[in-house]
């Protein structure tokens, strides 16, 4: 019994003391509240009766609950559902494909034995600083590739991200010991095999990070459908909501427009609609988050692969 307890304590040497743990938890609870509170404010306000907002301000629990904001935005449910479908499909396809493209490139520029490592790194890095602007990009997309008004346009242009390649590269350089790659090479494995069988499994947290970021990117993107499509069928949820939000902003901010729009302006539950838009834009993606968390586990260490 006694011995057992001693043993347990010994094993837990790399854990922090109880006091430290409690303190750390307190810090993180404060941090979590700072992140949750605004979110709760957004959701609370989206259900608030508009007239009360003007007298009491934003509240997490609105005094008078109203669904007007959602009624206004969801008045036409058909296009919204369609937009969600577009977003989800684009996000899934885009995340999978781009993670593969990024990981392959990052692996290549992480290997010292690759002859053109420096060139390929610089080639990529240069694009992080210099870009030619929208017009030539638009010409490439519409005239050279001719992808405007296709679903491809919502995925293809964003497949690579120099920033995420760089992040992934450091995962590969720091997390993958040279030894196992070398020994695999001596065993006659090709680079692609080494990547799939050895490097990728050890780097799952890194790959999951980049996949998560790319997923967030595709989820939040409205620019590609906005620039490269003009038919409503390609509108994703962000574009759909941005349009409502921007029109709302403009009507509120410029007297000229407001004077013209008159009746329509007064009908809109302004603050509520804004917050409801935010809630609708975030909603589903938050649910996807725990899915990614499962990949952030330790234990996928080199040791387990060696064995």
């Amino acid at each position: 019994m006694n011995k057992n307890r001693f043993f347990k304590k010994k094993l837990r040497k790399n854990e922090i003391s109880t006091t430290a743990n409690v303190l750390l938890n307190v810090v993180f609870i404060i941090y979590a509240l700072m992140c949750l509170y605004p979110m709760a404010l957004v959701i609370g306000t989206s259900f608030a009766e508009e007239t009360y907002l003007n007298t009491v301000g934003y509240k997490i629990f609105p005094q008078v609950v109203s669904f007007d904001a959602y009624k206004y935005i969801l008045a036409n449910i058909q296009p919204i559902l369609r937009a969600y479908t577009v977003t989800i499909c684009v996000t899934v396809v885009g995340t999978v494909v781009s993670t593969v493209v990024i990981a392959l490139y990052a692996y290549v520029i992480s290997r010292n034995e690759f002859r053109y490592k420096k060139f390929f790194t610089f080639y990529l890095f240069f694009t992080m600083l210099f870009n030619g602007g929208m017009v030539p990009w638009y010409i490439v997309c519409t005239q050279l590739l001719d992808i405007n008004n296709t679903y491809v346009a919502l995925v293809w242009p964003a497949l690579m991200s120099a920033w995420y390649v760089m992040i992934m590269r450091t995962f590969f350089t720091t997390g993958v010991p040279n030894g196992i790659v070398e020994s695999a090479r001596i065993d006659g494995a090709g680079e692609f095999m080494i990547f799939v069988r050895i490097v990728a499994p050890v780097s799952i947290p890194g790959i999951a990070t980049v996949a998560l970021f790319q997923m967030v990117y595709y989820w939040n993107d409205w620019y590609l459908p906005f620039m490269l499509t003009s038919d409503p069928e390609y509108a994703n949820i962000q574009l759909y909501l941005k349009r409502i939000l921007n029109n709302l902003q403009e009507i509120l901010n410029s007297p000229g427009v407001a004077a013209q729009s008159g009746d329509a302006l007064a009908k809109i539950p302004r603050e509520g609609a804004r917050m409801a838009i935010c809630a609708l834009a975030i909603g589903p993606i938050v649910l996807a988050y725990p899915f990614f968390q499962r990949f952030f586990v330790s234990g996928l260490t080199v040791g387990s692969i060696k064995g």
Binding site: V101, Y105, Y107, F114, R115, Y116, F120, Y123, T127, E191
Partner: peptide
């Protein structure tokens, strides 16, 4: 290095198309 080059190819082409070709716009 053909295996490395092959693996980098999708990313290489992607960057060429969407970053380097439009860089002509720098002269704007």
């Amino acid at each position: 290095n053909w295996q490395f080059l092959l693996m980098a190819m999708p990313g290489f082409v992607q960057v060429l198309l969407f970053s380097y070709l439009p860089m002509a716009g720098l002269i704007l």
